[in-house]
Design a binder for these strands. Structure first.
Lengths: 239, 239
DNA sequence: CAAGGGGTTGGCACTGAGTTCCCTAAATTA
DNA sequence: TAATTTAGGGAACTCAGTGCCAACCCCTTG
């Protein structure tokens, strides 16, 4: 590299330089046909530097997820005492959707490669699990007071993650032209409905009377009430 | 190999032979310290044969999951028209728990290695996703009539999978001495309660009156009813 | 200005997973 | 018995990932 002429005043950090070179080559030749040597040659850096910034060749496809996971963990920590746990967890997943929405074209590119390359599909699942694990850890702590807390934490984390991922994947499949965060929020409504805590705490009493009117299949209502009660009372746990 | 003397009358198929040799070595030296060459040397077969039976070194740790996944897919196909989808999906996951319970000592061994080796943790997630994918595909088809069917399929599949895995993992953590299938069934009760279809279809009418008595926090009940209704009526979807 | 000293990068050389190609031998079938 | 299929053995190769060390940059300190 010549060093005399101001050098564009700002050299992009090695990480971005490598990621850009990698995505270029992936577009040209595909992920599997591109070797790490190709990437470092295109980036004009040494081979060893690649693995200093990415633990594996697959990881270069997900360059932002590490930071995003940190953001999520940080956000989860901001929960106050009164915060609804499920609500907070759902909101946390939106950080990921927001990350996707920030660079739609790159997200689309990544989506195509993930869809076509088995190794990347697998790696995406591993990345997703990391988010899920962070959510579960947060919920587990919040549900510590109930005996089936750990179980519920896992279930809700998995459900929220699944809802979010489905929304984002649908958003990508449709060209990433709409609002990804809104789509994710809509999808998460189902999770909130099934598992969310009460937003308006009425005074706790000994009786509950629910009277409702609906043309929809009422078995669902009955069933949900029945099992909501069953879930509250017996507190069965597989310790 | 000498071939004159009846050869123990029954040579175990290559797959089991390799898996047994592998587990022996993993116990002795750990997964990471064991090379594929070690395994084939112990098994007394050629190196090439290993990769004929296992696509990767990690896969030898999960030798039964392929067959188990086939079993699950086959079981899911047996759903009759009247069958409750969520119920059937939950029941399907018990096939996996049953597989774990069949060889508790081997399951424990595997658990210890998975817990300690990051590469195996990752690979387990990939395997789990395959089950989840099968469940989701089944539910997606069954929920095809509702607009948010695909989303619900993903959520319920993830929730059922998470509940099952949590139960099995807890079972393993406690030494694999109790009934794994029962533990899984108990854990899945939460999923059934939240997402299961009504087991006793009452006559569909225009009104629902629920009167119940409980010392438990009643906000939960109200909240679940409220959102169950909201979910039935508007049918919002992120298409 | 010179001498460090921490941090970043490059350049090997090495291990080991996974693949390709080809050979051997047994089993099957004509 | 001859031909063909099928299962396994084995050398050689590609490439991801790691360890080690030298070179370099930049900033401090004498």
């Amino acid at each position: 590299m010549t060093s005399g002429m101001a050098e564009d005043h700002r050299k992009p950090p090695m990480r971005d330089l490598l990621a850009d070179a990698a995505f270029e080559l992936f577009e040209e030749k595909g992920f599997e046909q591109t070797t790490v040597d190709d990437i470092v040659a295109r980036a004009g850096v040494g081979r060893r530097s690649f693995f200093r910034y990415f633990p594996s060749k697959e990881d270069v496809v997900f360059p932002d997820h590490e930071r995003c996971l940190d953001d999520m963990v940080a956000f989860l920590k901001t929960a106050a005492d009164g915060t609804d746990l499920v609500e907070h967890a759902c909101e946390a997943t939106l950080l990921v959707a927001r990350m996707y929405a920030e660079r739609p074209e790159r997200s689309l590119m990544r989506y195509r490669h993930i869809r076509d390359v088995p190794a990347l599909r697998d790696h995406e699942h591993i990345v997703i699990r990391r988010y899920e694990h962070a959510l579960a850890a947060f919920l587990r702590e919040g549900f510590a007071f109930r005996p089936d807390g750990p179980l519920h934490a896992e279930i809700i984390a998995a459900a929220a993650s699944a809802a979010h991922n489905h929304a984002v994947r649908t958003w990508l499949r449709n060209g990433a032209t709409t609002d990804a965060v809104a789509a994710a929020r809509t999808a998460l409504a189902s999770v909130r409905a099934a598992w969310g805590a009460p937003p308006t705490p009425a005074e706790p009493d000994d009786y509950v009377v629910v009277i409702t009117r609906s043309r929809a299949p009422l078995q669902d209502v009955l069933h949900h009430v029945e099992h909501a009660l069953a879930r509250i009372a017996p507190a069965d746990d597989a310790e």
